[in-house]
Design a protein around this nucleic acid. Structure first.
Length: 1133
RNA sequence: GCCCCGGUGGUGAAAUUGGUAGACACGCAGGACUUAAAAUCCUGUUUACAGCAAUGUAAGUAACGGUUCAACUCCGUUCCGGGGCACCA
């Protein structure tokens, strides 16, 4: 029997699928374990070998934990909103929803091929309305919350409003607050909301009419097209992540992230302590507020620098400098933040003509602007101390600004010295103090003088949360002039409207702005909006305002609350009716669902025909409900509404009857004069102009909370029921790349903290442990093609490629100017010339480097035949110049893996060729999970050989059996005998190593351990069932298919997925002796065998009687004898 | 520029975290089986020098310097590669 991996893998994948082997329950007596991968963006290029690296690692861990007796949650989903799909839509006109769906199908098929143990019933897709409904809902929670500085947590904004109403705050009294207009109040509240709107700068490209990402801007122009890009202020949404800065820092102490990862987050948050202080400018009406972490250097301030965007720039610039400043501002506008910070060689800046005054010694200080000061950090203004700060120093030198030395000999005039250890000089009251001690003294003085205060500052800025794009979550926000109004939760999901065109909207708005029907929206007067509007004393106005209400506000409120309490989520029957009537399905009559009328919320209503359709759920049997229903019916009838009631059973059993009834009644009503149209909800453009928010949420919105949705993926009442999140709790192991170190990980940590504060979940950190997988880079291959310049008459023709390819080493010679090689190629080229019947001469030959598909290359050797056939036989008739050993070699370079570089390797092909088990183990064998490395397929044979060798422990190798008769029988090799101690030792050594390595995610060494183990078992000719079964269990997380197959071949019951992990028994591993390496002066010279329990004295005696050592000791004196028990011996002479 | 990571044979890498540098593989070379190929198995494989050989000596973990009985591992400086730097995901 042969190792037929294709058959085996297909069989078990099907079987696992059919038996729901990977389905996980939220209820189990076992302890829980949550293993999560960072979900992929389903790109059009499909899965490449880089994706599975982390997935395989987490899959192995999940399977391992399952064997160890845990109830393991291991889900997968798709981060399916994003720019590439939109870009693709722009180019091809295909709707992102369509391409995304297609890509996801491809991804899933590819993932399944590798045999992952995902519970697909829990799949999430961020672009699915049933998912982003909850992203929007959480956004509303953020919008409706503020950060309470006293409790250091998020609280409902209603609490703050209540406080303002009754107590006011330090800026206004309660009476003042209450007198503010709605818009004024909202503007104030906006300063506290966790999701808030404000103006911010974006990269604006006029020519493309769109906003660009930083990496789409290169040297001040757009990457595509090279059009100029400038900064533009736009209304943007933000998340107030800075409010959580301290808690995000503290939280790092409670999680198991790698130290560098924590360091990166700390640096990103960039907490610093210092002081903010004012420098009066000119005659003293204006003051520049600077932030500094080094107030001790205040007497070394030689100039101030403002960010070019600083609001004071215009006001302080003197007339004589106006022109230069304007010029400089134009220049800066074209520069990205990154460029501004990175180019250190190029020092730019401009003097404003203004002078500020040093508040301590009255010294006038010139005020400059320069691009190296960023508006977004601190106050956007710095005090420059050239003797202590390198950038200030370079600036001072460049513009010949005199430098004050306050640190004496610590400053050498050549470089700045940022020390805190120097003793201050030229520093008035700080003279003689150590700088680090002077910091506090200076701050105290600043506060005492009232010119500033102690201040904690963060480098981190509030997170920009809007994108001028189409393919993202729409904001559940409408604008009434400058006031943002949140939609009601009942209006969610606010679905992304279908787009025909994806181009940018006017004024840099997103594509949604082009959909005027959608943008100028009809306010379904939601209860939420009603709540926002205070009722007036004048009841007649109420009538107008509320449209359908003729009772008092209080009465409306009461009935509304009751209705709200009784409102249920869509039942099956309701859904059936909704599908029946929606979209003007019945004779073009528009129905609305749960549209409030006079405080009541009927199930379905057609306002144009004044027809209400109700379903009687079980709760209608309730006595109180019956009374309520009656009252409601009477009331609504008074308004001229007609009501049809169906029972649940009617709807579920006879939908045709329901349809017929509704259709008939509608027809009757159409003829009936009395059923004049009910007032429709107000439209925009009238008295109240409402406009939807047209930007969408960024990619990280959906990914900030997806780990919660997996716990309770189909819940329609809430994003994740508390019971589920309490059970699964934190993600125990989160696997993903370092490229998300600061973005995604910080955002999801913040969201988790907010949800915790608001009481939705019971834990504050989403990820208990983080494992970083390295990046698999592409290893691109290049070939050299010959090119010539011909002489046409006396002129040199332009360079043309000819169909001759040159192997790498030969090409290197040519490039190094090897005359022989060049001559050889010239001859070759002449032959071609002759063949082409050209009478011209060759002026010059050269080599042209071009990409080849890495899949045609084994190591560096090109498969000529595949290459010839590539791209429609493009190189079919090409000639090849080989190496001396008749191989054709390619040049290699490491780059990012990408389709356009022809360096992607598709896992499907490898799975087809070698099987998923081989592929899984090979990816792990490649190196440590967390290490980045270029992909290389060439070692995969070795792993495949290992699995075949494993197979031969179970079945005889038929190729070794000469006669067909013998092949037919006796293939199985295993025996049911008691293993020897030596065999147990092999097993338990393996158990120990595999368990350790699996726990530590050291999978490359685990694979090596399996190889060693199988080699040893083969050498020992051990075919004992007991040993083999245990090895299979150990192996099953790594190579599940072959393990399951052989597990059953051995006759074991049940799936190996649920087998019991073998227990390590140390007794088999005990050694009687240990071979100690003996070094002399740290260099290994010999080895001696000692009993494991040997003491230092015994060791010394043994060493001193060792021949080799004695030879080394000859004539020398033993200075020291070092004995590390169980490790080594070192003799110092 | 700033923050983080990495650099070990021809190649991917290993090294119990300061204790025998190169496990396990790939590749290569030689051999066995075979008419042959594939498959499989065996032997060798850091470099230099010496030796028929077992082996020995020296050097060696990007470069230089330091700490230590002992450094791939810790510290300092430099070089090179990768990731991130807020609208790629």
């Amino acid at each position: 029997m042969e190792y037929n991996f294709r058959e085996i893998e297909q069989k078990w994948q099907q079987q696992w699928k059919d038996s729901n082997a990977y389905k996980v329950s939220n209820e189990s007596p076992k302890p829980k374990y949550y293993v999560l991968d960072m979900f992929p963006y389903p790109s059009g290029a499909g899965l490449h070998v880089g994706h599975p690296l982390g997935y395989i690692a987490s899959d192995i861990y999940s399977r391992y934990k399952r064997l160890k007796g845990f109830n393991v949650l291991h889900p997968m989903g798709f981060d399916s909103f994003g720019l590439p799909a939109e870009q693709y839509a722009l180019e091809t006109g295909q709707h992102p929803a369509v391409t995304t769906e297609k890509n996801i199908e491809t991804f899933k098929a590819q993932l399944d091929k590798i045999g992952f143990c995902y519970d697909w019933s829990r799949e999430v897709r961020t672009s699915d309305p049933s998912y982003y409904k909850w992203t929007q809902k959480i956004f509303l929670d953020l919008f409706n919350s503020y950060f309470c500085h006293i409790q250091q947590k998020a609280r409902p904004i209603a609490d703050l409003i209540e406080k303002y109403k009754t107590q006011g705050n330090k800026n206004f009294t309660a009476a003042q607050w209450n007198a503010y207009s709605k818009a004024e109040q909202e503007a104030i509240l906006m300063n506290r909301r966790l999701a808030f709107s404000s103006f911010g700068e974006v990269n604006w490209c006029e020519a493309l009419g769109t906003v660009l990402a930083n990496d789409e801007v290169v040297n001040g122009v757009s990457e595509r097209g090279g059009h100029p890009v400038v900064k533009k202020k736009m209304r943007q949404w933000y998340l107030r992540i800075t409010a959580y800065a301290d808690r995000l820092l503290q939280g790092l102490e409670t999680v198991q992230f790698s130290e560098p990862m924590k360091e990166m987050q700390r640096n990103w948050i960039g907490r610093s302590e210092g002081a903010e202080m004012q420098f009066a400018v000119g005659s003293g009406q204006l003051a520049i507020n600077v932030y500094t972490t080094r107030p001790d250097t205040i007497f070394g301030v030689d100039f101030l620098v403002l960010a070019p965007e600083h609001t004071l720039v215009n006001q302080i610039t003197t007339d004589s400098e106006k022109e230069k400043i304007e010029e400089y501002l134009t220049y800066v506008k074209s520069r990205s933040d990154r460029e501004r910070m990175s180019e250190v060689k190029q020092i730019t800046g401009c003097f404003t003509g203004a002078y500020a005054t040093n508040p301590f010694n009255g010294k006038p200080i010139p005020v400059w602007i320069a691009e190296y000061v960023l508006a977004g950090y601190g106050t956007g203004a710095i005090m420059a101390v050239p003797c202590g700060d390198q950038r200030d120093f370079a600036f001072a030198k460049h513009f010949s600004i005199p430098i004050t030395n306050i640190i004496g000999e610590h400053y050498n005039g050549e470089d700045a010295n940022p020390t805190k250890e120097a003793t201050l000089q030229n520093s008035d009251f700080l003279n003689g103090m150590l700088m680090k001690d002077a910091i506090a003294v200076a701050i105290n003085k600043i506060e005492e003088l009232g010119i500033g205060k102690r201040k904690v500052n963060y480098r981190m800025r509030d997170a920009g949360f809007s994108r001028q794009r189409y393919w993202g979550e729409p904001f559940p926000i409408v604008w009434q002039d400058e006031t943002a109004i949140a939609l009601a939760e009942t209006d969610l999901p606010l679905e992304l409207p279908y787009a025909e065109k994806y181009g940018p909207g006017p004024e840099g708005e997103g594509p949604l702005a082009n959909m005027t029907d959608w943008v100028n929206f009809t306010p379904n007067p939601s209860p939420k909006e009603r709540e926002l509007q205070e009722p007036s004393e004048d009841k007649s106005e109420d009538l107008q305002t509320w449209g359908y209400m003729n009772s008092s506000y209080e009465e409306w409120r009461k009935t509304f609350e009751f209705a709200k309490q009784n409102r249920k989520n869509l039942t099956e029957a309701e859904d059936k009716i909704w599908q029946l009537v929606r979209n003007r399905n019945i004779n073009d009559n528009k129905f609305r669902r749960q549209h409030p009328i006079a405080g009541f919320i009927p199930d379905f209503v057609c306002l144009e025909r004044k027809l209400i359709v109700e379903i009687d759920g079980g709760y209608h049997d309730n006595e109180e409900q019956i009374v309520y229903d009656k009252a409601r019916e009477n009331w609504l009838k008074e308004f001229g509404f007609d009501i049809i009631r169906f029972t649940n059973e009617q709807v579920l059993n006879d939908i045709n009857y329901v349809k017929k009834t509704i259709a008939e009644r509608l027809e009757e009503l159409a003829e009936n004069a009395k059923s004049a149209q009910a007032p429709l909800p107000r439209r925009g453009g009238g008295e109240v102009s409402l406009r939807r928010e047209t930007s969408t949420m960024p990619g990280y919105a959906g990914s900030s909370w997806y780990f919660l949705r997996y716990m309770d993926p189909t819940n329609t009442e809430t994003f994740c029921v508390r019971k589920a999140s309490d059970y699964w709790n934190q993600v125990d192991v989160y696997v993903g790349g370092t490229e998300h170190a600061v973005g995604h990980l910080l955002y999801s940590r913040m969201w988790t903290k907010v949800l915790y504060d608001l009481g939705y979940i019971g834990f504050e950190e989403p990820f208990k442990k983080l494992v970083n997988q390295g990046m698999i880079q592409g290893s691109s291959r290049f070939v050299y093609k010959l090119a010539w310049n011909l002489l046409v008459g006396d002129d040199v023709d332009s360079k043309k490629l000819i169909n001759i390819f040159i192997s790498k080493n030969f090409a290197d010679k040519v490039n190094d100017g090897d005359l022989e090689a060049i001559k050889f190629l010239k001859e070759k080229a002449k032959e071609v010339l002759v063949k082409m019947n050209l009478s011209m001469d060759i002026f010059e030959i050269s080599l042209y480097k071009t990409r080849v598909d890495v899949n045609f290359v084994n190591g560096n050797e090109l498969d000529i035949n595949q290459f010839r056939e590539w791209r429609n036989n493009e190189n079919y008739s090409a000639e090849f110049i080989y190496e001396s050993d008749s191989k054709f070699l390619c040049e290699a370079e490491v780059e990012k893996m990408s389709k356009s570089k022809y360096n992607t390797v598709n896992p499907d092909e490898l799975c087809n060729k070698y099987g998923a088990d081989t592929f899984r183990m090979y990816e792990m064998f490649l190196g440590p999970v967390e290490q980045s490395k270029p992909w290389d397929t060439k070692g995969i044979e070795g792993v495949h050989r290992f699995l075949k060798k494993l197979w031969r422990l179970f079945f005889a190798d038929i190729s070794a059996v000469p006669s067909p008769v013998e092949r037919g029988r006796g293939e199985a090799k295993w025996v049911d005998e008691k293993p020897t101690d030596a065999e147990y030792k092999i097993l338990h050594k393996t158990i120990k190593k595999i368990e350790q390595d699996t726990e530590n995610f050291s999978y490359n060494t685990a694979v090596a351990a399996f190889m060693i183990s199988v080699n040893e078992l083969a050498d020992a000719k051990c075919y004992k069932k007991e040993i083999l079964s245990a090895v299979l269990i150990l192996l099953s997380p790594y190579a599940p298919h072959i393990a399951e197959e052989l597990w059953h071949a051995l006759g074991n019951e049940g799936s190996i997925l649920d087998a019991t992990y073998p227990t390590l028994e140390e007794k088999y591993l005990v050694e009687a002796t240990k071979e100690y390496p003996v070094s002399i002066n740290g260099k290994m010279r010999s080895a001696i065998n000692l009993p494991t329990e040997a003491t230092e004295e015994e060791a010394k005696q043994a060493v001193l009687s060792n021949e080799v050592i004695l030879k080394w000791l000859e004539g020398k004196e033993l200075k020291k004898f070092i004995f590390v028990k169980g490790r080594m011996i070192n003799v110092v002479i």
